[in-house]
Design a protein around this nucleic acid. Structure first.
Lengths: 121, 121
DNA sequence: AATACATATTGCCATATGTCGATATGGAGG
DNA sequence: CCTCCATATCGACATATGGCAATATGTATT
């Protein structure tokens, strides 16, 4: 039961749903996800940790970046089933559509370096 | 998005999952669900309200009782999909199995009347 | 060693959530 | 009207959650 609860809680925040919908498109590093979410970097890290612990995402290091992706081989069967469901969900949602539109412009090389947390664009 | 969040939040509490698994077996009134959950009556009412607002359950009056049942004709498509999923979930869960075992003994006519809230059996 | 970059962690704060006891509400019966 | 029964609502409290700024951590470069 606790595995199911972990997944349900992970999916109970709009921001985290947005992350998952973004990761359906491509893997993204924290600083890119920060742009996607428009929140503080620490907040993004916290959200990612919740998603990881629920078995919904996993990460790998690439140079200075930590890339996150949907966890296609997750141990948590509930996570797997929900990720499959999510593929069809929110396809008409305005927030998701807008994010889909802006995603191609979001790339780590275009994000300004050494600035305080970017909470607004 | 807010409809999806409502369902995910509703499914994020172990007690509420237990309610849904119980209602897979038969409709139940609040006092019976109180026995199932082993919590205060007011807590049970609150949980049921959350489930109802998420479109997961609905109620009908029968004499002095309010019977709750899974909402098979829910407006919320996410609720419908999750109810279908839930049918296969937690079938091996200890809490659910125990509840299934005890459910036949739980009936409104066998519940003592006019007592303070029954928080422990 | 110092500096830079990316990210994880910590601590604080405001708000949400789950639990309880008390009380209000709705309805039936005498 | 009063009493009883079942349930919804309210208010208080402890804990969880989501956001932020500050800081720690890991790695690479000079």
């Amino acid at each position: 039961m606790k595995h199911l609860i972990k997944v349900m809680k992970a999916l109970s925040d709009p921001g985290r749903l947005k992350i998952l919908k973004a990761l359906e498109n491509r893997k993204l590093c924290v600083c890119e996800l920060q742009e996607v979410m428009g929140l503080a970097q620490s907040t993004v890290s916290k959200h990612l940790k919740i998603l990881e612990e629920a078995g919904l995402v996993h990460w790998e290091k690439e140079g200075p970046w930590v890339n996150y992706a949907l966890d296609k081989t997750t141990d948590n069967p509930y996570a797997a089933e929900m990720l499959a469901k999510m593929k069809n969900w929110l396809e008409d949602d305005a927030t998701v559509s807008e994010m889909r539109f802006l995603l191609p412009e979001i790339h780590r090389d275009r994000i300004r370096k050494s600035l305080p947390d970017r909470t607004t664009s």
